[in-house]
Computed example of a mutant assay.
Amino acid sequence: MSSSATERMPRHPPLADQPNELWQSDLTRITLADGTDSEVIGWIDDHSRYMLHLIAHLRVTGRVVTDTFNETATQHGYPTATLGITQKNGKPFKPTTQRKKG
C-alpha cells in the first residue's frame, strides 16, 4: 500500500460549483525540529482545491484567523461563504480542548 497523502485521505467532491464560492480553513499543530510547537492555518478554495494561503504561527488566535482571512481575500477576492476551521484534536478556540484551562 502506498503512503501518499492522496491515497490515505478520501477525496470528497467539491461543495462549491464555482471558484470563490466557498473557502475552507484548517488548523494543524506541528512540532518543529527544534521542539517548538507551532500551529499552521490554511485557506483553500473548495471548488478548485487551490491552497490560497498557508502560514505557521506559534499560536493561531482569533485575530490570526481574521487577519489571514482578510489577507487572502485581498489577494483573491472575498468568497461567498466559508466553512469553519476544522481540527483533529479538539475544537479550535475552545479553552478546554486547547490546553488553556484545567
Rank of each mutant, 00 (worst) to 15 (best):
His57Asn: 11
Ser38Asn: 02
Gly84Trp: 01
Gln75Ser: 15
Leu22Ala: 12
His47Gly: 02
Gln18Lys: 14
Glu21Gly: 13
Ile85Asn: 14
His57Asp: 08
Asn70Cys: 09
Thr97Leu: 03
Asn20Ala: 07
Arg49Ala: 07
Ala16Gln: 07
Ile41Asn: 09
Ser4Gly: 03
Met51Trp: 12
Asp34Cys: 07
Glu39Ile: 07
Glu21Tyr: 15
Pro14Glu: 06
Pro79Thr: 02
Asp26Val: 11
Ser48Leu: 03
Thr6Gln: 06
Val60Met: 02
Pro79Asn: 08
Gly42Leu: 12
Asn89Gln: 13
Asn89Lys: 10
Pro19His: 02
Thr36Phe: 09
Leu52Phe: 12
Lys88Met: 04
Trp43Phe: 10
Leu54Ala: 15
Ile55Arg: 15
Asp26Thr: 14
Ser3Trp: 09
Thr86Ser: 06
Tyr50Thr: 15
Thr80Ala: 15
Thr68Leu: 15
Phe93Ile: 09
Asn20Pro: 00
Asp37Thr: 12
Gly77Leu: 10
Leu27Phe: 00
Asp67Arg: 08
Arg63Ser: 13
Ala5Lys: 14
Asn20Thr: 01
Pro19Gly: 08
Thr6Pro: 05
Thr6Ser: 12
Arg63Trp: 04
Val64Lys: 09
Ile41Ala: 07
Asn70Lys: 13
Thr31Trp: 01
Arg63Tyr: 10
Ala16Asp: 05
Ile44Asp: 06
Gly42Thr: 01
Asp45Ile: 08
Ala16Gly: 10
Thr68Lys: 13
Asp46Met: 00
Leu54Ile: 15
Leu15Trp: 03
Thr80Gly: 11
Thr82Ile: 14
Ile55Gln: 13
Gln18Asp: 14
Ser48Asn: 06
Phe69Thr: 05
Ala73Lys: 00
His47Ile: 06
Asn70Phe: 13
Pro14His: 04
Phe93Met: 15
Arg11Ala: 08
Ile30Lys: 14
Arg29Trp: 06
Asn89Glu: 07
Thr28Leu: 10
Asn20Leu: 01
Pro14Gly: 11
Ile55Glu: 00
Lys88Ala: 15
Gly90Met: 04
Ser4Asn: 08
Leu27Ile: 04
Glu7Ser: 11
Ile55Phe: 07
Ala33Gly: 00
Leu27Ser: 03
Asp37Ala: 12
Gln87Asn: 00
Leu22Cys: 10
Gly35Asn: 10
Thr97Val: 06
Tyr50Asp: 04
Arg99Cys: 02
Gly62Ala: 13
Asn89Ala: 14
Asp26Trp: 01
Gly42Tyr: 00
Ala5Val: 06
Lys101Arg: 09
Ala33Tyr: 00
Ser2Ala: 05
Gln98Trp: 01
Gln18Cys: 11
Pro10Ser: 09
Gly35Gln: 02
Gln24Ser: 10
Gly84Phe: 01
Glu39Leu: 11
Tyr50Ala: 05
Thr82Glu: 08
Ile30Glu: 14
Val65Glu: 03
Ala56Glu: 13
Leu15Gly: 05
